[in-house]
Design a binder for these strands. Structure first.
Lengths: 251, 251
DNA sequence: CGGGCCCTTGAATTCTCTCAAACAATGTGG
DNA sequence: CCACATTGTTTGAGAGAATTCAAGGGCCCG
């Protein structure tokens, strides 16, 4: 499974967390920050393509993405794969597995990823002593549920073109919120196979669908990734209104 | 919107809750039971077809299903509907809305339903004083997430026949766990339109798919509902292994 | 230079949808 | 009790969408 690179623990102290500086995330009370800083036991850096958590495993850890992209997926016995959601900086990984016991899905890195590592055993302390953080965890789970609801609506009821437009607008909005698009280049590091496995389409049909979006100047398919040229146009095609901008909890 | 029938409050005291007696649900500590009993402000009985919560609304309440069936869904502007999940006794309703603010989906009763009503405002007290209940809430949210993951896999990657088989096996297993099939009759109270809107198929194709399952003696479509004749057979077709039987939290 | 990965394209096939019509069961008002 | 409307199920046929199969091209890297 995963080949983890060794990394000095705590290269980025929570007190200086670059994500925490973003206005997108809610602020911590001092005691919360102290707890989380203690909750964090180290960092992990993985290469693109690494499996971070595998379906069926029992991990003793929880992670927060510090930098990079990843995705969550499930597979059928014969190899058909469904991508469930994408992970980007600030996202919590492995909560489902920590609560229910066994991982019911796998997580893979799309780019080089740095993860903050937390001990699952300390979740009890968190619930007992930091009710606001416990509330945040529940909020995060409910938010993930909401995203899955929208995904399900999309795959179940939208046409191929609408689905593709929705997915790209969605990824664009999420990535922008965590300032992933600092430079002029606005690129999502996925292959068309990923898009196909997210939309529930074949790779051939996905290619033809993306080509249509390209012809309309909404996106440009770049080298191993997708540039968003007109997110408003994508939202219009998909009929998706976007999520309201609001502060988000973050652990 | 909803036409709620008046009902004397607290017809079923939590101490005598018939669901709590099932071995499927975890036991409460005495102080937890006392809190939940106080958390519950009354009961609500609604007819089949009633909208219990509507997308876009801000409800001051949370509910637990005491009896009956319902479903959660989202709609596109032009009326296309996607059913996200089904609700049965013991299921918590409206947590997403309570945490995030606005309901992002609607909930409708499939049969006459009785709901326990809770005050959203008291959620803070729950998190501050009852960490085990807070943990349960997070567990419940994670469990819903897991079900949605499986649904997404199904709609995205399974064939029509596999999808239908999965859905019916899934509903059967869930319903059996809460003893909904006491009598000889094992019937799920849905129309083929509901099945279609869950599977992301048209009603015509759904009908033809269900007919195939009927020819194989796996189900029998009864008057406004579905009888499961061979749940093992359905699981085999879908390739779904089922959820492990285990105690579940319940509020 | 060869191999691997990803993107692209065309063609035939299969799946699913829409349209259209009919039937069964139920309930309502006269 | 019957005529009629309503809701849900069933069936056939043609159109449209998406899949599989097949092949070729570009690019990077060892």
């Amino acid at each position: 499974m995963a080949r983890f690179k060794a990394r000095n623990s705590k290269q980025t102290p929570c007190e200086q967390c670059p994500l925490r500086a973003l206005e997108h995330f809610r602020e911590f009370a001092p005691d919360e920050l102290a707890f989380v800083s203690n909750f964090k036991t180290g960092e992990l850096a993985v290469d693109a393509g690494t499996t971070i958590l595998a379906e069926g495993s029992h991990s003793a850890h929880l992670f927060t993405v510090l930098s990079g992209w990843g995705f969550r997926y499930k597979m059928l016995d014969d190899g058909r794969r469904q991508i469930l959601n994408y992970m980007m900086p600030g996202d919590l990984i492995g909560l489902q597995g920590s609560l229910i016991g066994e991982m019911q899905h796998s997580i893979e890195a799309l780019s080089p990823v740095i993860l903050c590592v937390f001990e699952r055993d300390k979740l009890g302390t968190l619930f007992r002593n930091y009710p606001d953080l416990a509330y945040d965890l529940t909020w995060i789970a409910a938010q993930e549920e909401r995203i899955l609801d929208e995904n399900l609506l999309s795959i179940g009821r939208r046409s191929a073109l609408e689905r593709a437009a929705y997915l790209l607008a969605f990824l664009y909005q999420r990535a922008r919120a965590v300032h992933l698009f600092k430079g002029a280049r606005v690129s999502i590091p996925i292959t068309q196979q990923h898009v196909a496995d997210t939309l529930g389409l074949s790779i051939v049909h996905t290619n033809k669908t993306l080509k249509k979006l390209g012809e309309r100047k909404l996106i440009r398919w770049a080298d191993r990734g997708c540039d968003i040229l007109d997110d408003k146009g994508l939202m219009k095609i998909s009929g998706w209104e976007g999520h309201p901008e609001r502060k988000r909890p973050f652990i």
